[in-house]
Amino acid sequence: MISCTEFIPAYSELFGYLHDRGGREEVVRFWEHLSDAFLGNLHDLAANRGLAGCFEYWSRTLSEEAADFRMTLDEDAGLFRIEMRRCPSMARLLESETIAPYPDYCRHCDVLYRRVLEPLGYEYDIDLSRCHQARCVLTVKRPDGPKETENPENKVQRVRTDKPKPRGAT
């Protein structure tokens, strides 16, 4: 059994294996599959409870992952935000003496969550510009939330991939 505490390097190696087989396209294809198949809990929470569902989802997962973070839910502003001060996954990979992290490791957080949240009508952004310091900022906005300039906490550099396909698309 691979312990859940040893999963992250195995996950990174999976991305490397897929890349070796078919390039980045093959890695993204897996991320899309995992998003569709595995993130039903996030989908249901966000669909049923809105941004509070996002807060509930990440409260549990980030606590179990022993992340160092600040999470903010502002219902009036229509804004959910995670400031990741130390991502436990990337930090472990950076500290590893036996493996090198998959170069675009952090991008999976962009693809997986965007694919769940955007079809529900949310605006999703993640700033990965400091991911090699195990830091990032994730933002989810309700469409009726304030414009970016109205919220000083939301001044993040945008990093986006191609628009995701609809859920269930191949």
Binding site: A66, D68, M71
Partner: peptide
């Protein structure tokens, strides 16, 4: 706003 602020050292990685 609802805020949750956690440090890695206060949590169990599991």
């Amino acid at each position: 706003p609802r805020v949750l602020d956690r440090q890695a050292k206060d949590q169990l990685y599991l």
